[in-house]
Design a protein around this nucleic acid. Structure first.
Lengths: 256, 256
DNA sequence: CGATGTGAAGCCATTCACAGCA
DNA sequence: TGCTGTGAATGGCTTCACATCG
């Protein structure tokens, strides 16, 4: 079972996978892109799309890096993973770069999405236009509640979770989004996997067990908040420590 | 302006910050915890709390690691960052560990949260019980829409975003959550910063510009989907490449 | 004896700095 | 000349392996 990624998780690009064939350019290239770089490429793509809409045709690494919130060396290295599409002395053609990043991220194909768990978050996700417009049409909704089944949410009818395998297989769902309570998440996950779904975005605060061929990413709001809390605490400590030395958080005496 | 973290972002523990004083144990220790480890500590905490509720009193690194989806060496190293609270030959006391992780994450203090942007996602966040129960009470809601102001959502009245500074200052908000459309995000962020909010969780797909003393974490659903899309594409390539060699994604000829 | 805690080694990722090209 | 693309250097995180101790 593969551990899921998300937040500041481990970023190990399958270390065990052997490289049998010496050739095979593109897939080798795709394999070689560090996970961290993939996440940033998605950000560059968003920024570039915005610039393109504004009529910008060319941009330097310095400018794009600024707009994406990274330093320019990192940006250039990230782009170098996907090829050499810049012009020295000039910069990058926005449209060309958009095309290449979309290709690498696999956005030239449609990826149908199923959302399971139509509570507050599920509703929000079903109604969130950002998915469909970016090539991720929400093609199926599921919930365990009979009162919801049949009722359309965001224009899509809700099915019962017992139908996950049938419906997902039929509609060729490639990404499953789990927005159920934690207790239900693993069972839902198992069904999605049975339906052939290979990628899962998990909002439930549980560690899902999946086969190695399934990719899981998790978004855990509580964890995000706690990371921020850690930084609040650290700052408070530093500030307090600079004045009243010898005493740490919560009045715990550091040097008795 | 500091770049925000999130997803598989850069994890650099403030390299520029100088260490003036040589002593100061706890804050030094807190500072020394790698960002990646902090994220995992939050996961361990959740697992441990669950185990505690089930009556488990002691657990080994191997078991806890399994439940948290990491390997045991990593878990032990993570725990070693916060101190030596295990018993050799036995394992860790669940309750003791929960206490120490909570302390390190700053969860012994309440962190009031403000949610800005009461659309689909904002509604979901306001109604999401997981926050309050975990020490992050949602203490204020804001929206630009006059029709919403005054109306309570999840029991909390919505204020106009013009009141962010007043209300947040008054209620000592320590974490701001931005769930607005992208166009509004930077302006909202600026107001939160003016109100003294030092931590921001950003759901809007934009790169926020903030002063160095403000910590931003971002959750970008589109980016998450695109990372999964990348993996779908990579897998498809590998599978296709193993059979029909010489041709890559989208029929692009690799070896002409 | 068995599991923790931790130096040391290895591996990624970021950053630097400059060669190379338009 | 100016900016890209990239080897080399650096720094952090993960993994290994074992000394240590209850």
């Amino acid at each position: 079972m593969a551990a899921q990624r998300g937040e500041g998780d481990e970023v190990v690009t399958s270390p065990a996978t052997t490289t049998p064939e010496p050739a095979a350019d593109v897939r080798e290239r795709a394999r070689a892109i560090p996970e961290a770089a993939v996440a940033r490429l998605a950000v560059y793509l968003r920024v570039l799309s915005g610039l393109g809409d504004q009529g910008v045709t060319t941009i330097s690494s310095e400018e794009l890096a600024g707009a994406a919130g990274v330093n320019s060396a990192k940006l250039r290295k990230d782009l170098s993973y996907i090829g050499s599409y810049g012009t020295r002395g000039v910069g990058y053609d926005v449209e060309v770069l958009v095309g290449h990043i979309e290709r690498i991220l696999g956005l030239t194909r449609k990826h149908s999405v199923a959302v399971v768990g139509i509570g507050n978050l599920g509703h929000a996700l079903a109604n969130y236009g950002g998915f469909g417009s970016r090539g991720f049409p929400v093609a199926a909704l599921f919930d365990i509640d009979d009162d919801l089944t049949g009722v359309p949410v965001g224009g899509i009818p809700v099915h019962h979770i017992d139908d996950i395998v049938t419906v997902c297989t039929e509609r060729e769902i490639s990404i499953g989004v789990i927005a159920t309570p934690p207790q239900a998440a693993q069972a839902v996950c198992d069904r999605l996997v049975s339906a052939g779904v290979q990628c899962i975005l998990n909002f439930a605060p549980v560690v899902l067990q999946v086969p190695d061929n399934v990719e899981v990413r998790k978004v855990d709001l509580a964890v995000e908040m706690q990371i921020l809390s850690f930084h609040v605490a650290r700052r408070a400590d530093e500030a307090a420590g600079d004045v009243v030395n010898g005493v740490g958080v919560d009045g715990v005496v550091i040097r008795p």
